[in-house]
Amino acid sequence: MKRLFDLALAIVASVVLALPILIVAVLVRLTSPGPALYWSDRVGRRNRIFRMPKFRSMRMGTPAVATHLLANPAAHLTPIGPFLRKSSLDELPQLWSILVGDMSFVGPRPALFNQDDLIALRTAQGVDALVPGLTGWAQVNGRDELPIPQKVALDAEYLRRRSLWFDIRILWLTAAKVLRRDGVSH
């Protein structure tokens, strides 16, 4: 049921958002050298690595680490990077990952391949059994501001509580957070 929900919603979203996706891709290309998309190695279900697309908000050559680990993250942003991140438009290409089954709309956010602490804690809690999501329970409860152990605790709570209705609630809360731009790091 969850996969059918994801497919139907991803197809509708892809059609509705086709023009904005095209506009953002052109703007990324016009404002900084390099491709519009950045393909990030992420950890999926059962700790399998997959390639997740995002609109590129960082300059070419930026180290592949979590933003908070960069000495001066703002120095690595492209001219439209802050806008893409604050608006969450950089996440739109992840519709592709949902369509191909690497991601779901709701689940724990996929860890970077080198976030060993997050991966180990999730595996210990059984969270690695879940398909990662575009959004999740941790995202609506603090997003980038949460320390890793608290994120994992919320991911484990999602594992215990997951249902279609809980997913719909999380999607609704995510829409509200994105519109208010709550908890977004720059």
Results as ranks from 00 to 15, higher is better:
residue 140 V to N: 05
residue 173 L to D: 15
residue 153 A to T: 08
residue 123 T to Q: 13
residue 168 I to E: 07
residue 58 M to A: 10
residue 104 S to M: 12
residue 90 D to H: 01
residue 108 P to K: 13
residue 42 R to H: 01
residue 82 P to H: 03
residue 182 D to E: 15
residue 146 L to P: 00
residue 35 P to I: 05
residue 52 M to H: 00
residue 144 D to V: 02
residue 139 Q to T: 02
residue 100 V to M: 13
residue 84 L to D: 06
residue 167 D to R: 04
residue 127 V to A: 04
residue 73 P to T: 09
residue 82 P to S: 04
residue 82 P to D: 02
residue 3 R to W: 08
residue 168 I to N: 08
residue 109 R to G: 00
residue 60 M to E: 15
residue 165 W to I: 13
residue 118 L to C: 07
residue 17 L to N: 05
residue 97 S to D: 06
residue 80 I to S: 12
residue 154 L to S: 00
residue 44 G to S: 04
residue 73 P to I: 02
residue 85 R to E: 03
residue 77 L to Q: 10
residue 148 I to M: 14
residue 155 D to L: 11
residue 167 D to I: 09
residue 124 A to I: 00
residue 4 L to K: 13
residue 156 A to K: 15
residue 52 M to D: 00
residue 100 V to C: 15
residue 105 F to N: 06
residue 64 A to L: 08
residue 55 F to W: 14
residue 170 I to T: 08
residue 164 L to H: 01
residue 96 W to E: 11
residue 60 M to S: 13
residue 174 T to F: 03
residue 1 M to Y: 03
residue 175 A to H: 11
residue 167 D to K: 12
residue 43 V to H: 02
residue 112 L to I: 06
residue 136 G to T: 04
residue 117 D to A: 13
residue 177 K to I: 00
residue 48 R to T: 11
residue 133 G to N: 03
residue 37 L to Q: 09
residue 110 P to R: 00
residue 33 P to Y: 12
residue 149 P to Y: 10
residue 34 G to W: 05
residue 109 R to L: 01
residue 124 A to T: 00
residue 180 R to K: 12
residue 34 G to S: 06
residue 154 L to H: 02
residue 86 K to Q: 10
residue 174 T to V: 10
residue 186 H to I: 08
residue 22 L to M: 07
residue 140 V to P: 03
residue 47 N to D: 14
residue 140 V to I: 12
residue 89 L to Y: 09
residue 169 R to F: 08
residue 17 L to A: 06
residue 171 L to T: 01
residue 167 D to L: 07
residue 152 V to W: 15
residue 51 R to I: 01
residue 62 T to N: 08
residue 47 N to K: 15
residue 50 F to T: 09
residue 48 R to F: 05
residue 66 A to V: 01
residue 153 A to I: 06
residue 161 R to K: 15
residue 137 W to M: 13
residue 62 T to V: 07
residue 145 E to G: 15
residue 63 P to T: 05
residue 105 F to Y: 03
residue 22 L to Y: 05
residue 151 K to V: 04
residue 38 Y to T: 06
residue 20 P to H: 07
residue 168 I to D: 08
residue 186 H to M: 10
residue 120 A to L: 07
residue 148 I to T: 15
residue 19 L to M: 04
residue 109 R to H: 04
residue 156 A to D: 12
residue 106 V to S: 09
residue 53 P to Q: 07
residue 121 L to P: 02
residue 162 R to S: 10
residue 162 R to K: 15
residue 106 V to I: 09
residue 37 L to S: 08
residue 87 S to Q: 11
residue 19 L to A: 07
residue 57 S to F: 12
residue 135 T to G: 00
residue 151 K to D: 04
residue 37 L to C: 08
residue 74 A to V: 15
residue 151 K to Y: 11
